[in-house]
Amino acid sequence: MKIKKDKFKDALASIAKEAKVFLPMKGVYASEYRVWDGAGEPFFERNTALPPKELLFPRSERMYEYDLNAGTVTEAAPDEKIVIAGIRPCDVRSVEHLDKVFLESEYTDVYYRARRENLTMIAYGCATPAPTCFCDSMDVVPTDAPGADVVMNDAGNSYVLTVNTPKGEHIRDLISSFLSEGKADDVPAVSCSLKVEKPDDLHKQLIARFDDPMWETLSDACLGCGCCSYICPTCYCFDIGRENRGKTGTAFRCWDSCMFSDYSRMAGGHNPRPTKKERLRNRYLHKLAYFPERYGTSLCVGCGRCIDKCPARLDITNVPDIIQGSESNG
């Protein structure tokens, strides 16, 4: 199937009649997946500054409200239908990873599940990887997203669509009047310029080197901010808190980062991760060792956001490089 590019917005308008449509768009200050207002242009040239996790795992989310006078507790039940049109394959993979944590492990997260069931993903096959992109080294195919409901690829003056799931069939039905016949077999292959070589047992080698002096060197320039974790599509740590107003209040959860000192600080003040060395090691090991150990796949999807935005230009690909003994920049 194909859709002419000049019909793309008409198709979005058809979808917008029954769901909130999000598009990768430029903002005043930074790009992100934003609610489509019916007119805005998609930003497909490179990945957005903010990942899509916000739509499934908001940076701040009300869990329940309580009223002790009335003796009631009201739990939040997100039920909004959301369609992301133009999510990149690396970001689709990140959603698959979040699914593993919030849906497929022993505990199912009800808030995440509610949002996830209401989410449809239309992937946009990436044609323009940035210099910091390395998804094809992390088992993502830049032009394809098997985890998405629909995949669309640029084919000159039109997009070629491939439907993967029943949710995708529904999208196809919604926009059928804009579709024409066309095959997806002419998508040119795309390759990232940044390549990462990693041994199959990377996670084992990293854990074996838990006390290695390399963590000191890797974290020298770290500033200890939370930039990398907040712009990472797969960093999912959160904190839970309450805001009381007399006898009523709200419980919320919000993003947290293992790069912050208070993340691992215990009651009484002891901190088992006292410096940036331990904190950065934990973040890298979570991506490249602990998650693979538990779920059989790297948590890093190679979107390159942390490399691009780190104030100190730290580069997660230096970690597998050191293990491979091919560290390029020392």
């Binding site: 903002g27 005043v28 903010l50 940076r59 500033l223 901010c225 939370g226 907040y230 208070d262 104030p311």
Partner: peptide
């Protein structure tokens, strides 16, 4: 509009030589 976009990563605080308190009020949760 500016601060609706802020993700509170505190990179601005951590790079700033004038933000040099022994413990930042932000971390006194």
């Amino acid at each position: 509009e500016v601060f609706d976009q802020c993700i509170r990563c505190y990179a601005c605080r951590n790079i700033c030589p004038a933000c040099n308190c022994k413990e930042c009020y932000v971390d006194m949760t």
